[in-house]
């Protein structure tokens, strides 16, 4: 067996889904004995069989991945309940193994995957997807890059044909529910720090959260970072369309038309709104020079 063959074989065994009792499966997908197959390359010792020794890695693989992705979706967990949430995470990870060296990226596909798997959310698919999208947007806003915002020199060079860009950390969301109410309710109940003192062993545990039940209503949100903290900011449809056009790389002359493409607002009211959108975006440092 070459090193590569060895690693492919072990990776397959280590990442094989666990049983319902969180143990290594005894039968492989082709009906063969996993114990026999593992014994071909793992030595037993006086206390553990080859199967049991590899089982440590098999369980460790799943426990690490489950923990890593679960901690990024606490509100989805609270909303669905631990039983349904665990089932969802396991299925997600089976279909979406890690393809990044960084565990930080593990949950990236969960919102879109969830959209295609209503069986894990019951009657609340749309709200669950919105909550998952918002929780992932939070991760992105937390640690993606922040570039220098537009300054007076950049402004002096602006033309109607100029193309601006949005901060890489800024996330634009069009949601079907006010999902931030659910997320904030869960965050409010999380402990600030989790230090275990040998003097005080008792750990703070989060209380049972009473979740709000938002009504269905289109919600536009900017999730962004300001002074290294993440904020959710509600915006209106016009601002959403305008910022989306900037993100798509449209020149300013097109951006201003996009904001009210189907609106009956009077020109003066539109102009007032557009001015307001740009004031807020520039004030919060959301706009940057086009990196291209």
């Amino acid at each position: 067996m070459t090193l590569l063959e060895f690693q492919r074989r072990m990776a397959e065994d280590v990442s094989r889904p666990l049983t319902a009792g969180f143990m290594m499966q005894e039968v492989g997908p082709d009906g063969s004995s996993v114990a026999e197959s593992v014994a071909n390359y793992v030595k037993p010792n006086g206390r553990l069989s080859s199967f049991e020794r590899l089982e440590i890695y098999n369980r460790q693989y799943w426990f690490r991945l489950i923990a890593a992705v679960s901690e990024d979706f606490p509100a989805l967990n609270a909303m669905l309940g631990p039983k349904r949430f665990d089932e969802l995470i396991l299925n997600y990870l089976e279909e979406n193994p890690s393809t990044s060296f960084n565990l930080r990226d593990l949950g990236a596909q969960l919102p879109s995957w969830l959209e295609d798997h209503p069986e894990f959310t019951g009657a609340h698919l749309d709200l669950a997807v919105d909550v998952a999208r918002l929780e992932w947007a939070y991760i992105e806003a937390f640690d993606r890059a922040a570039m220098p915002p537009l300054d007076e020199t950049d402004l002096a060079a602006l033309q109607p044909t100029s193309v601006l860009a949005l901060q890489p950390h800024l996330q634009l969301l069009a949601l079907r529910y006010a999902a931030e109410k659910v997320v904030l309710a869960v965050h409010k109940n999380k402990p600030d720090v989790d230090i275990v003192s040998s003097a005080v062993i008792e750990r703070k545990t989060s209380r049972q959260v009473r979740l709000p039940k938002p009504r269905r209503s289109l919600t536009y949100l900017v999730v962004h970072r300001y002074q290294n903290s993440v904020y959710y900011r509600r915006i209106d449809r016009g601002a959403f369309l305008l910022l989306s056009a900037i993100r798509e790389g449209k020149p300013l002359a097109i951006v201003v038309d996009k904001a009210f493409c189907q609106s009956g607002l009077l020109p003066s009211a539109r102009a007032k709104k557009i001015r307001q959108y740009f004031v807020h975006a520039a004030e919060l440092g959301w706009l940057i020079a086009n990196p291209a």
């Binding site: 300054d151 402004l155 904001a259 740009f278 004031v279 004030e283």
Partner: peptide, 26 residues
């Protein structure tokens, strides 16, 4: 065209106002 130019002027005014406010606050 007038509507468009009005919107564009508003955008530039907003950019200028917001950027100045941010720099002043800093």
């Amino acid at each position: 065209t007038t509507v468009h130019n009005l919107a564009l002027a508003a955008a530039f005014a907003g950019l200028l106002g917001g950027t100045s406010a941010r720099l002043n606050a800093q």
